[in-house]
């Protein structure tokens, strides 16, 4: 049963490129991907710049400049299925820390010629601007999950990307809980699975790279971290990293603000 090869576009907004790199990082599977789809636009991989429309588009990065705020609408119009990849595209990313401060102040401090800098006051996820068909979390995304999402899209089924806690991955692989056994501050219980339990398996607490899980009880976790000896300032910082602008993490950090 031959399929026509769908056309794939990969677009970058404000981001570090790490998530698109996950596609190149597929190595052995990459050949199968190129057989399954025609890579029509992917500047990190090829200079070949074919025009849309695209059947599937992967969008990396957040909307941080006026140019990007316009471009995302063009991408949406030229795309069938739009999939956002990574913490930047799905929550705003680390650059969304600027949402909580005065951007003009940063620009004046950092750049010799602030007048050349054109930026928005906020870094926001793609879904704040256009309709998104699927959001793939992670900082960076997990390449196996990326393949699963592409695969599911090609085969017309729902991707198997669980939204439950990271703890389920830790326990499934037999990792000893770093919070219970070592008293480490860990965001695992409120973070969506997907990384495979990378940090706890390396004896570190979870940093929350995959953003809030489906029903995150961040208040209960904060209380526990406080009982384990974390200062409100440290708990605040824990929630203000790669997914600082994800509503559950943002609200928890804000609730700690008067105590920071």
């Amino acid at each position: 049963m031959a399929r026509t090869r769908p056309r794939l576009g990969v677009f970058k907004f404000s981001s570090c490129d790490g998530c698109q790199l996950s596609l190149l990082d597929c190595e052995l599977e990459l050949l199968a991907v190129t057989e399954a789809v025609e890579i029509a636009y992917f500047l990190e991989a090829t200079r070949k710049d074919m025009k849309g429309p695209f059947d599937i588009t992967l969008v990396e990065g957040s909307v941080t400049t006026p140019h990007e705020a316009e471009l995302i609408h063009k991408v949406r119009k030229s795309t069938g299925t739009l999939i956002t990849i990574g913490a930047c595209a799905t929550s705003g990313g680390i650059q969304a820390l600027k949402n909580f401060k005065d951007v003009k102040d940063f620009i004046d401090k950092v750049y010799a010629h602030p007048e050349y800098i054109e930026t928005l006051a906020t870094a926001t996820p793609i879904a704040d601007h256009v309709t998104v068909d699927f959001e793939l979390r992670g900082c960076p995304i997990n390449k196996h999950q990326l393949l699963e999402v592409i695969n599911a899209t090609l085969n017309g089924r729902k991707p198997v990307v669980p939204k439950h806690s990271e703890c389920i991955e830790c326990k499934s692989r037999g990792t000893v809980c770093v919070m219970v056994a070592k008293g480490e501050a860990c965001l695992g219980p409120v973070t969506q699975a997907g990384c495979g339990g990378l940090c706890p398996a390396s004896h570190r607490g979870c940093f929350g790279c995959f953003g809030p899980m489906e029903t995150p009880n961040t208040a209960a976790l904060s209380e526990r971290l406080k009982a384990l000896g974390s200062a409100p300032r440290d708990i605040h910082r824990l929630f203000q990293t790669f997914n600082a602008n994800a509503p559950a993490f943002r609200q928890q950090a804000e609730s700690l603000e008067d105590r920071v």
């Binding site: 599977e29 057989e35 699963e148 695969n151 090609l154 806690s165």
Partner: peptide, 26 residues
């Protein structure tokens, strides 16, 4: 926190989900 740790470490909890995977070519 609805994290599920209790069910994972419980020696009698048995619930499972079934996941179908395919290769890209199907």
């Amino acid at each position: 926190m609805t994290c599920g740790n209790c069910t994972m470490v419980c020696p009698t909890c048995f619930c499972t989900t079934v996941e179908d995977v395919t290769d890209l070519a199907g």
